[in-house]
Design a protein around this nucleic acid. Structure first.
Length: 567
RNA sequence: GUCCCUGUAGCUCAACCGGACAGAGCACCUGCCUUCUAAGCAGGUGGCUGCGGGUUCGAGUCCCGCCAGGGACGCCA
């Protein structure tokens, strides 16, 4: 019955139930005069880091001591003695200086194996998001060059987050914002045009600040290979426009393919130009103008962000008449919230965009949207290392380590693992040698190896014609088995935590913990034994192993990694 | 100069809303393969959480001040 009440995630349901009972016990104690009247601090149930303190604990008595003017231990006793017994839990205990500890019953933990098996690949799914529509916008690299290592971090973070939010019950749209207009694109188009002419033997110079990367030369050669000298026959303005179009589409296509190499894909490739064609730009501008946030001065049009608490105003339209990218961004957010009516939006930006966060939020306010609906995650820089040496990227020449090169060198899974294992707001080092080394010092293989080992056991069982349907989970009672189950039941909470904090790096640590618990189990508990008398235990352990496989595979898939059948 | 992020074991990083002895991986030392994969397991060494104050029953976590590293402060994106 409690399983039904708690829905898909039994563990989460249990936590909620304990919270309610704690509140009830306090009220009862107050009615009975064991505790003084007064309101409670926030009641929380947390996971003690020391296993000796049980599976769950609350520090409520410590928090309430001041308000109640009663010693924490006395409060703990008063509450604990009034908590109704739960079939999921051992009797609660009180521990100094004032904790109440809860320990899961063996019987309940054993049943969780069935719970996981019944959920299958959906284990970990929640209804937290209640179908809310969320836009996750990430990568959005300017289509002036290929994706390089600096962008990969945001790509991995965004796609992992999107997967987790989906698991948590949100309706997620993954979107790439293509900056296909603006002055940088003009420079790019001109760069391609110059290279194209050079391919045809014309003596022309690259413009100052032009895109010097060799990929531009390659691009020009490709275009020449397909279109010949077609563009030379046009007048220059027209030539730049036309060849620019071709180059743009090719770059977008290349970016799409490169991101595909690490399992990153998008529902929508949103074109900046559409903001102007669909009049989102005009609507957004008139909206903030009507709000009194626009001023004309020094020949330009400004967004008066100081009126919204910003340090300074920002230009919307240059004196040349060209809108800034900031103006596009306002129109883009108008489109996100007011045209497409997303209920929530998450932007993932690089550290170099950090200064834009507050002004975009100000703009959102000016559009009449609650800024809390917009989360901006800033991912810090990546330092690339090779055997302790920093690999310097030269932006001048455009010679950066590209995503493609990275994947070719270290592989997709290692790449995703290392980028998703770090919290976004810490700068990180990516050691190519470590990521690529397929040895025991690489956590990627440690985790995948656990999955492959399980797959091996299940294969073995199948070959021997062993069935687990009749397995009796109550036979699972060694320390290794219980520790493993204790890890497995955490997945739904993990999905909850990640979607609440928007910090997917917890997944990597969890995967490592599950793998550790499994390897430990594997070394101590043989699943398929020789002794025919032990067939009951074999069937029970097959169930546990399959549950573990489900959890590992799900966690790996949430991280966008593969779960290999053999290694 | 102003704003943002970071500073935790030799290295790379965790630590959920402030909680119980600060945890992993790698590196280093010692053991374990006639049994489902040793890409594994067990044990050991390793810490003034950058420094100094403060708040709190309790601080790696919150506040103030320093120091150090990175980023941002354009009519660039």
């Amino acid at each position: 019955m409690w399983i039904k009440a708690s829905g898909r995630a039994a563990m989460l349901g249990l936590k909620k139930k304990i919270l309610e009972q704690l509140r009830g016990a306090v009220e009862q104690a107050q009615r009975e005069g064991a505790l003084p009247p007064g309101s409670l601090p926030d009641v929380e149930v947390e996971r003690p880091q020391n296993p000796g303190h049980g599976d769950l604990a609350t520090s409520l008595p410590l928090r309430a001591a001041r308000a109640f003017r009663v010693s924490p231990m006395a409060i703990a006793e008063a509450i604990a003695s009034r908590l109704p017994a739960l079939e999921e839990l051992e009797p609660v205990t009180v521990a100094p200086p004032g904790f109440i500890n809860f320990t899961l019953r063996t019987r309940w933990l054993q049943e969780q194996v069935h719970h996981i098996l019944s959920q299958g690949e959906a284990y970990g799914d929640l209804e937290l998001g209640a179908g809310q529509r969320v836009l996750v916008e990430f990568v959005s690299v300017n289509p002036t060059g290929p994706v390089h290592v600096g962008h990969v971090r945001g790509a991995v973070l965004g796609s992992t987050l999107a997967r987790v939010l989906e698991a948590a019950g949100y309706r997620v749209t993954r979107e790439y914002y293509v900056n296909d207009s603006g002055s940088q694109m003009e420079v790019f188009y001109r760069s391609v045009w110059i290279r194209y002419q050079q391919v045809l033997g014309r003596d022309v110079e690259m413009p100052p600040g032009g895109y010097m990367g060799t990929y531009v030369v390659d691009l020009a050669r490709e275009i020449h290979g397909e279109r010949g000298d077609h563009f030379l026959r046009l007048d220059e303005t027209e030539a730049i426009r036309e060849i620019g179009e071709v180059a743009l589409e090719r770059m977008v296509q290349a970016i799409r393919e490169d991101l595909g190499l690490i399992g990153v894909d998008f529902h929508v490739w949103f074109r900046e130009r559409d903001l102007y064609q669909d009049s989102a730009y005009q609507k957004a501008m008139s909206m903030i103008r009507n709000g009194g946030y626009v001023a004309e001065r020094e020949g330009a049009r400004w967004f008066v962000s100081t009126a919204l608490g910003e340090d300074k105003d920002n230009v919307l339209v240059r004196s040349s008449g060209a809108p800034t990218y900031f103006a596009s961004d306002i129109a883009y957010h108008y489109d996100k919230f007011l045209t497409r009516r997303f209920e929530r939006a998450i932007n993932i930006w690089g550290a170099d965009h950090q200064g834009h966060v507050s002004r975009v939020k100000a703009a959102v306010v000016a559009l009449g949207v609650d800024p809390r609906l917009l989360d901006v995650i800033i991912v810090q820089m990546v330092t690339l290392k090779r055997g302790g040496e920093v690999v310097r990227a030269s932006k001048r020449t455009g010679e950066l380590v590209t995503l493609r090169e990275l994947v070719e060198e270290v592989g997709r899974d290692a790449c995703r693992y290392f980028f998703s294992a770090r919290s976004a707001d810490a700068q990180m080092e990516f050691d190519l040698d470590l990521a690529k080394r397929e040895s025991q010092e690489n956590p990627v293989y440690y985790i995948q190896y656990a999955h492959a080992r399980i797959a091996g056991i299940l294969r073995n069982a199948r070959e021997k014609g062993l069935q687990s349907e009749e397995g009796d989970v109550s036979l699972l009672n060694t320390g290794e088995e219980m520790d493993l189950i204790r890890k497995l039941v955490l997945l739904p909470e993990l999905v909850e935590t990640v979607s609440a904090t928007l910090e997917p790096h917890h997944l990597a640590y969890y995967a490592l913990e599950v793998a550790t618990a499994f390897h430990w189990f594997y070394d101590h508990c043989r699943v398929i034994g020789e002794d025919p008398a032990d067939q009951d235990l074999v069937r029970a352990r097959l169930k546990l192993v399959e549950a573990c496989r489900i959890v590992l595979a799900r966690t790996l898939h949430l991280m966008g990694m593969t779960a290999p059948q053999r290694m």
